[in-house]
């Protein structure tokens, strides 16, 4: 049985999840993705990991390639990708709220 795309994005630091988050603000090519992820998540993805995630996301239909510009191919998030990202973000938000309540951090996660 085929897995739902959301099932592949189970962790907030999952490279695929980081790439979707980055692409949610607009199309980017590999190096721009790497730099953006570094900036907002503080995570440096290795080339193998980055392109492994790009391959996986493209196979799942969550991102799609655009025309190459000087050998650098930008990618953009698809409608399915946005749906998956929204769903996973909601789920993470829900879990974060539960954790915050139990840790009595309700002010920060209200």
């Amino acid at each position: 049985m085929a897995k739902r795309p959301q099932q592949s994005l189970h962790r907030p630091n999952d490279p695929a999840m980081l790439l979707l988050t980055s692409l949610a603000s607009g199309p980017k090519h590999g190096y721009a993705l790497l730099k953006d992820v570094e900036e907002f998540a503080g995570v440096t993805l290795s080339p193998g990991t980055l392109y492994g995630a790009i391959t996986r996301l493209e196979e799942l239909g969550l991102i799609e390639p655009l025309e190459s510009v000087e050998r650098r191919r930008p990618y953009r998030i698809t409608t399915s990708g946005l749906t998956a990202l929204r769903e996973v973000t909601r789920e993470m938000g829900r879990l974060a709220k539960i954790s915050a309540t139990r840790l009595r951090l309700s002010g920060e996660f209200a």
């Binding site: 090519h29 080339p47 391959t55 050998r71 650098r72 191919r73």
Partner: peptide, 9 residues
């Protein structure tokens, strides 16, 4: 992915 990967590296 070959060409873009080389450019990326």
């Amino acid at each position: 992915y070959g060409d873009e990967f080389v450019a990326f590296v």
